[in-house]
Write a protein that binds this DNA or RNA. Structure first.
Length: 417
RNA sequence: GUGGGUAUAGUUCAGGUGGCUAGAAUGCCAGAUUGUGGCUCUGGAGGUCGUGGGUUCAAGUCCCACUACUCACCCCA
C-alpha cells in the first residue's frame, strides 16, 4: 500500500464541511472589511523567499521544499503566503490601483519539519495583506479582522500578544546594545544561542532553554530602544486597540521568525491545543516590497493556521457546521422504477432541489436504511401506483409522518419546507 | 536534526509466565413470510498480527535491526 506522505493530512468526505464552515465565515468577514481575494502560485522561484523571508531564518535555512525543475530553475513550494503576494503586487503594478490594497488568501503552505500536534509539512493558511498604509490604523484594521473572525467562530480564549521590533534604524541601535549585553553572558547560554549571537541576536530572546531565559530576563528590550517614529506608532496601535475594546498583552519577547517584519508584531495564542499554540501570527513589514524589487510600500498582515483553528474549535467544543446532505431521497420500489426515479431526481435538481436516488439496485428496506443513516430529510417511495397516479407520499424522516403530494409539484413542496 | 511513546480487522481495542483454524465492540454488506429507516435478532465479507532477521519442537507473545505513526525539543500557522 502506498500511504500518505509524512506530515500531510487528508480532509475526508465526512469532515470537509468543517472546512467549508470556516471558509464561508472567512469570506463573509473579509467581504465586510473590503478585502479582495488574491491567488498566487503554489510554487515560486526560490530567490523570492531568500530575499523576502530572509536567508538567516530557519524557514529558509532548513525547512523549504526546494527542487530544480526540468528547465534547470530553482523552484520552492511556498513556505508562507506573504512573499508571493508581495511579488504579485510588484509584478502587476498593484501600487497603481487605488490605495490601500486590501487582499486576502487561503492557501496551502509547505515546510519540511518534524510533524507533531499542530504542526504539519503541508498546512493551510488564511492570510490578510494590507498594502500602502503606514498608519497605526492599518495595523489595527488587520488585527481587527482576526479578532472578528474569532468572535464569529465563538472563540474567546485566544490571547493577543503584541510587540514592536522597530525599524532598521532603531533596530540597529538595539542590536548593538543587545549584542553587548549578550556577549558578557554568552558563556552560560546554549549552543544554538551562541551561533545566533552574530547572525540574528534578536532570536535569542525567544529561546526556551532555562539558562538562556535567565539571561534574557535582564536583557535590554527592543521597546526601550524604539526611535520616536516607531515608539509613537506602537503607542498609537495600543491606544486604538484599547479604545476599541480589543484586549491585548504587550509581550517584549515575541520575535517573529521571518526577517521582513518591522514595527508591530503580534500573535494570537491558544493554550488548549498543545505546544504549538500560535493560531495567528502577523505584523508590519514595511521593507518587504522594496526587498522584492518594488518601490517602498508599507504593509501589514497576518497568517492564520486553519488546521490549528479547527483544533481550537474542537478543543473548545464549538460548532463547526453540519455535514452537507441532499434534502430528498427518491426510493424506487424495484428496478422497474429506477429510470422513473432517476428522471424525477433530474427534474428536482434542475429546479434547485438537492435530490438523490438509488444507484445500487437495492431493496426498498436497504434504501430506507441508507437514507436514514445519511440523514436525508425526506424520502419519497416511487412504485407502480405512484407513477400511474402521479401522486406520492413524502416521508418526513425526523418524525416519520407522511404527507401526500402530486409528483409534478414535488419540487415546490420540498422547497416550501 | 535530537529525545520519549506506540505499532493486532475500515475504526477503537482484547490477546498473564510463547502452544491447536487470532478475538470483541463498532462500521460495512445481506436477511428476519416479499411497499418503508432509526431499536432488536441472524448471517456474511474483512487481518501476510508494521517489515526483516534471530532464539525455539512451537512466536502476535522473547531478542535484534529497520520502518511508520505519535508527542516534545527546535521553529512556527
Amino acid at each position: 500500500m502506498i500511504n500518505i506522505p509524512k506530515g500531510t493530512k487528508d480532509v475526508l468526505p465526512y469532515e470537509s464541511y468543517k472546512w467549508h464552515y470556516i471558509e464561508n465565515i472567512v469570506r463573509e468577514i473579509t467581504q465586510k472589511y473590503g478585502f479582495l481575494e488574491i491567488r498566487t502560485p503554489t510554487f515560486e522561484h526560490t530567490e523570492l523567499f531568500l530575499r523576502g523571508v530572509g536567508e538567516t531564518t530557519d524557514i529558509v535555512n532548513k525547512e523549504m521544499y526546494t527542487f530544480i525543475d526540468k528547465g534547470n530553475r530553482s523552484i520552492t513550494l511556498k513556505p508562507e503566503g506573504t512573499a508571493g503576494v508581495a511579488r504579485s503586487f510588484v509584478e502587476n503594478g498593484l501600487s497603481e490601483n487605488p490605495q490601500p490594497m486590501k487582499m486576502y488568501y487561503i492557501t496551502p503552505v509547505f515546510r519540511y519539519e518534524r510533524p507533531q500536534a499542530g504542526r504539519l509539512r503541508e498546512h493551510h493558511q488564511f492570510g490578510v495583506e494590507l498594502y500602502g498604509s503606514d498608519s497605526p490604523y492599518a495595523d489595527v484594521e488587520v488585527i481587527s479582522v482576526a479578532k472578528n473572525l474569532f468572535n464569529a467562530l465563538g472563540i474567546t480564549e485566544l490571547e493577543l500578544n503584541i510587540n514592536s521590533i522597530g525599524c532598521p534604524v532603531c533596530r540597529a541601535e538595539y542590536n548593538k546594545a543587545l549584542k553587548e549585553y549578550l556577549k558578557e553572558h554568552i558563556d552560560g547560554m546554549c549552543a544554538t544561542c551562541k551561533e545566533r549571537l552574530d547572525k540574528n541576536p534578536l532570536r535569542i530572546l525567544d529561546c526556551k532553554e532555562e539558562r538562556c531565559k535567565a539571561v534574557n530576563v535582564n536583557a535590554p528590550r527592543v521597546i526601550d530602544y524604539l526611535c520616536d517614529d516607531c515608539k509613537q506608532h506602537h503607542e498609537s496601535v495600543k491606544s486604538i486597540l484599547t479604545s476599541l475594546g480589543i484586549q491585548f498583552k504587550v509581550n517584549p519577547n515575541i520575535v517573529r521568525g521571518l526577517d521582513y517584519y518591522t514595527k508591530t508584531v503580534f500573535e494570537f495564542v491558544s493554550t488548549s491545543i498543545g505546544a504549538q499554540g500560535t493560531v495567528c501570527g502577523g505584523g508590519r513589514y514595511n521593507n518587504l516590497v522594496k526587498e522584492v524589487g518594488g518601490k517602498p510600500t508599507p504593509a501589514v498582515g497576518f497568517g492564520m493556521g486553519i488546521e490549528r483553528l479547527l483544533m481550537v474549535l474542537e478543543a473548545l467544543n464549538l460548532g463547526v457546521g453540519a455535514p452537507e446532505i441532499p434534502s430528498v431521497y427518491i426510493a424506487p420500489l424495484s428496478s422497474d422504477q429506477m429510470l422513473d426515479a432517476y428522471k424525477l431526481v433530474a427534474e428536482l435538481r434542475s429546479k434547485n432541489v438537492s435530490a438523490d436516488t438509488d444507484i445500487m439496485g437495492r431493496s426498498l428496506k436497504a434504501q430506507m436504511k441508507y437514507a436514514g443513516k445519511r440523514g436525508y430529510a425526506y424520502v419519497v417511495v416511487l412504485g407502480e401506483n405512484e407513477i400511474n397516479e402521479g401522486k406520492a407520499k413524502i416521508k418526513i424522516m425526523a418524525t416519520g409522518e407522511e404527507v401526500a403530494v402530486e409528483l409534478n409539484k414535488l419540487a415546490e413542496e420540498i422547497s416550501r419546507r
